[in-house]
Amino acid sequence: MKRKSMEEYFFKILMVVSILIVLGGILSVIFTVVLKGVSALSLSMLIESPHGGYYLGGGGGILNAILGSLYLACGAIILSITLSLPVAMSLHQSTMKSRYVEYIRTSLDIACGIPTIIYGAVVFTIMVFIGARSSLFWGMITVAIFILPIMIRSIDEIMLQTPKKIKIAAFALGSTRTEMLSVVVKQSFPGIVTAILLAFGRGIGDAASILFTAGYSDSLPTSLFEPVATLPLAILFQISSPYPVVQQRAYASGLILLVIVLTASIASRVLSKKFMKYVVK
């Protein structure tokens, strides 16, 4: 008898300790970036480009990277959503199970699992092969490609939750498959918004994919076909600098990135609630 309750007590402690360690870790990561970042954050970091010698301790900011990342991520998301939505819809055109649809889902799942560094490496290989230079354009393409399977499957999962009766209702009224699918999209809309915003968060924070495809630049992004600075790489370069002043700025840059990602996450929750109005439970 006693052994049972001792065992229970022991494992309960283990569980609480585990969750505390996990929570401690989460809070540690967030607070480190926030606290260290805030102390190094200044207005000029946000509104100026790096001056000459910025990485040696000189003045300026990372506006180039902030804008670069925002343009890149937005462009990638726009490219991706124009393809993800039709693909996700095509997986739902029938009410029947289909082996072909399962094949597509499986290949997309595999693509989701491929590390982003490999996406970067492959796109870079193609770029070298056709003689292209790294630029905002190629950065957008790389991010769009790795985000694509993720976004398709997220939207697909949302659509899987559509009650079958809605599809039947649409068909019974004489809808074509495409018309039925637009009803499914209406029903899935809050989930689609969430998928887009979360994909934005992933895309803007990823460094491995754009390491060699987007290049880097100290000037503000002006052209699609010029190398562009990005926040993750700005952080990487600043933390690698031997000058402590510059290293501190890496944390400030990290804070900026964190704020952007958190904003996207919060926006996804808020917006998806707003769009829940007409969704049938």
Partner: peptide, 27 residues
């Protein structure tokens, strides 16, 4: 689609579309 326009159907459990009352009828 024309057949189903001519021959309407009502299911056992109501299946409103994810839209307003007006849009459901207008669909």
């Amino acid at each position: 689609t024309e057949l189903r326009r001519k021959v309407g159907s009502i299911s056992q459990t109501p299946n409103p579309l994810p839209m307003s009352i007006f849009d459901n009828v207008a669909y």
